[in-house]
Amino acid sequence: MQVTLKIQRYNPEKDKAPWWGEYKIEAEPTDRLLDALNYVKWHLDGTLTYRRSCAHGICGSDAMQINGANRLACKVLLRNLGQVITVEPLRGYKVIKDLLVDMDAFLARYRSMKPFLITHSPQPEKERLQSPEDRERFDDTTKCILCGCCTSGCPSFWANGEYVGPAAIVNAHRFLFDSRDEGTVERIELLNTVDGVWRCRTIFNCVEACPREINVTRAIGEVKKAILMQKV
């Protein structure tokens, strides 16, 4: 099939403003959008720039707006995208070059949420015990690949860039609801701020955007409830 890719291009080293590059290519309906981008880069214009690595939706490198929706380029096939496909960088982050955006602030917010197990009691010689039911409570939020789709799709984040954003809260949830974790008090302190969970207005864009199908809004709701009850 023939498809036309309309890609937003912008290289601050030489462009004054973003512009649209149009590329007509011959492709298989079963090709990933990433394959099509690679085709353009490898055969038509070597300067086209984006991140990618695993090519099957696990590493979180290639999040972008595809026909207006936040998606991983390696996880959508051309046959689901129509004849003319628009590709733009994720919204809400500074564009560095073409589809590649500055994720530093996003990743720094994730790291600021103490995303590691906090324990005070002594470690057993073997494993800590955890029932399958307790393990299940935070299963959904262990799936996050830090692609940025959710935070970039969040109107509360567009309105206020200081909001820690859904991805950081998802990762806080992962530890808050882990029965082995003993950091509840300090975690709640981090989340219970104006730029913490309370900026979430339950708009659900994040749920639609998550390529790992994490129920982000539910996780945030559980965190809010934990703060109000002062326990998990």
Binding site: L117, K126, E127, R135
Partner: peptide, 19 residues
Amino acid sequence: VYDLEHWGLPFSRTPEGKI
């Protein structure tokens, strides 16, 4: 593997709660 568990790795569990 025990170190990983102590660091918080969410292993799947047996009914008794072991890895």
